[in-house]
Design a protein around this nucleic acid. Structure first.
Lengths: 383, 383
DNA sequence: CGCGATGGTGAATCACGTG
DNA sequence: TCACGTGATTCACCATCGC
């Protein structure tokens, strides 16, 4: 599907990720000049993530004044002026096409925008074949009020997270996000303060860049969808928030930035940044990443004896472990997963958490899921 | 600006609004058949607001099961099936063009969608010449989780509020919104629960419509951007939430709906709906222009005595008025808005209508909202 | 009547490797 | 490309029922 015919990146096995990026990548570098030209110098399929904070195409009519008469420092820099939607759309399609080429087949794109541009960006991204995974609302805890009282306070910006295609094996650190959110799934609305205070870069007393993003935003983006050592490309580098957070989190980075002044500010900023040490970078891992253990191996190795009785939480079914690691219940038999599935009449079943057994504990017999034995086995057999 | 040349509706003085709609408008009617055809029967420049909840084009894969094995009842209805983005875009452009014609020059369009369709919708709306005023995020307080742990919980939907053009004199009831939001400017992110419980329409025990919207959402939309007597058109009427809320708030409504069954359900629903009485509506109307009155001023001026007991309609909570105009309930205290909000656990609360008190009347004690005291105060202090 | 346990459900682009 | 086996995975709210 898609209006525009594209070379759809098809599903492939996720390549083994290493901390070593291709030797010809200009890591920790801010490329100068137009970002499309700059990206052309990068090889195909070479970066793990693209984070883009493109110009917003703000259409502010004249100057905006606060009630006290002071003027709002609006985004009126020359790089943000576009004569029409068409020019903005062409610009968007250009940089995004190049970003798509540089991105690995299983890499992901993040773009941030406001209602002025995000609908153009989202549509074009879909037309190019990207597959939207989530739209994320950055809900600002301290937005600028609507001084004139003519609209709702514009209190959020929108991010789009997209993979190269529907079947791509994108990276999502589910467990790390759940941990970060107090053991609840991370939602699509993030409450974060805008960039200010000491974090806001100043030059001669005024803000160095009109739309500097908070580091907390990039922190969450990278923690959620990259691994240590991954390469992050930012085509609109600005003052280098992406680079600073990447360095801190042990990710590699490449930036593109047209303005000499911003490149200067960004490089100085990133040089000052200190990387977190190894132990701090450890995040909660999903069970998906653990090596697979066959239930039969536990029986073979004596962790569970043939003849052991296993049962579900409510003891509705009590089955017996056989020497080959299969279970038997009356005349029905099967693997821990298959038998659990059949007995419940469910579409599927995780036998590791469904079946329990009794074990002697300090205060008498204890009931534990058989998964606890697997954990013990994994610890004991670690290199 | 705009890719497509359109007849831009230019700024005009807002026409004097009356409660009498053009005589040839089919008010309180659900037009049958395709919504584009149905709208063709309506005259140019005749409705004050269009609220549209079009199909989202979800593009779902196979079945989805919860961790407990139960199956998610997905939206797989034929009306949500489109073969390509191009077909969806054409569909969108068609209904929106017709809606634009029917809409008055100073009228406004509201559209709701998710990331599947909202970027297409937003782009096309801009191409047609609509001027986006806000994008509003409906943050669901109780969304469905992401059962497989593959993405962020999709916890919001997006609404776009747009005028016919940049210079249109659209309606925005700033003060009503501020009052509704505990005397803070209403923000672009609204926390509201999804439609469930007694509000969710059922047919033979199952939901009558897969995507029924909560009345609170439409309530806020209409309270913010229409006046009493305004005509609201909903091209995707479904079970008639727009009609029901319009009737309650004293707005006129016209719906379009293809499915006989939904039209039946909607008509029966709206017939049962009771309009708010004049005084309640007058109150809301007057708020827009009324000078702001602090509850504390009423206490200061003796309209309400400190120590007065105030309570919600069901008398679940009985609080006491303190000298500074704050309320106290047990150990909790706050403004009339803040305490009401906290006790209910609601995102916001209009204390003026939430809290009531007893007053001696001709036939014994009467229960009145504290807002009635504000009205008395305003009358007494007029010039 | 209150309280806890239990079960149902909502606009959802919802797994992955092996053969 | 498809079929198959393994196995990872949920939050808030409501309705019902038992005590």
């Amino acid at each position: 599907m898609g209006v525009i015919e594209t070379t759809r990146m098809r599903a492939k096995a996720a390549p083994k990720r290493t901390e070593n990026a291709p030797a010809d990548l200009p890591l920790s570098t801010i490329l100068s000049g137009d970002c499309v030209e700059a990206m052309r110098s990068l090889p195909d399929n070479s970066v793990d993530m693209v984070f883009a904070d493109p110009p917003y195409n703000l259409q502010l009519g004249g100057d905006l004044n606060r009630p006290d008469g002071s003027q709002v420092d609006a985004v009126t820099d020359h790089w943000d002026q576009f004569d029409s939607f068409k020019i903005y759309d062409d610009f968007t399609r250009d940089w995004m096409t190049e970003a798509r080429r540089v991105l690995k087949p299983d890499g992901a794109l993040w773009v941030i925008g406001s209602y002025h541009n995000i609908f153009r960006v989202g549509s074009i991204l879909q037309d190019l074949g990207f597959w939207i995974l989530n739209d994320i609302v950055w809900r600002k805890s301290n937005p600028m009020p609507n001084f004139k009282g003519t609209r709702f306070t514009n209190a959020h910006e929108t991010l789009i997270w997209a993979s190269q295609g529907e079947k791509s094996k994108y990276q999502f650190n589910y467990r790390a996000m759940k941990t970060l959110n107090d053991e609840l799934q991370m939602r699509s609305d993030w409450v974060l303060p805008i960039c200010g205070g000491g974090e806001r870069l100043k030059h001669n007393g005024t803000k160095a860049h009109p739309t500097q993003k908070p580091e907390s935003l990039l922190y969450r983006v990278m923690l959620a969808t990259t691994e240590k050592g991954d390469v992050v490309l930012d085509p609109f580098f600005g003052t280098g928030t992406t680079g600073a957070v990447a360095k801190r989190l042990g990710r590699q980075w490449i930036g593109c930035e047209r303005e000499d002044f911003y490149r200067d500010v960004a490089m100085k900023r990133i040089e000052k940044e200190l990387p977190l040490d190894e132990s701090a970078l450890e995040t909660m891992q999903s069970k998906k990443n653990a090596p697979r253990v066959a239930f039969g191996a536990l029986v073979e190795n004596g962790y569970i004896k043939p003849g052991t009785e296993v049962f579900d939480k409510k003891r509705k079914w009590v089955a017996t472990v056989r020497a080959d690691g299969s279970l038997i219940y009356g005349k029905q038999m099967g693997s821990i997963h298959g038998l659990g599935k059949d007995l419940q009449g469910a579409p599927s079943c995780n036998g590791w958490t469904f079946w329990h057994f009794e074990q002697d504990g300090p205060g008498g017999p204890e009931v534990k899921p058989i998964d606890s034995v697997r954990q013990t086995y994994l610890l004991a057999t670690e290199d």
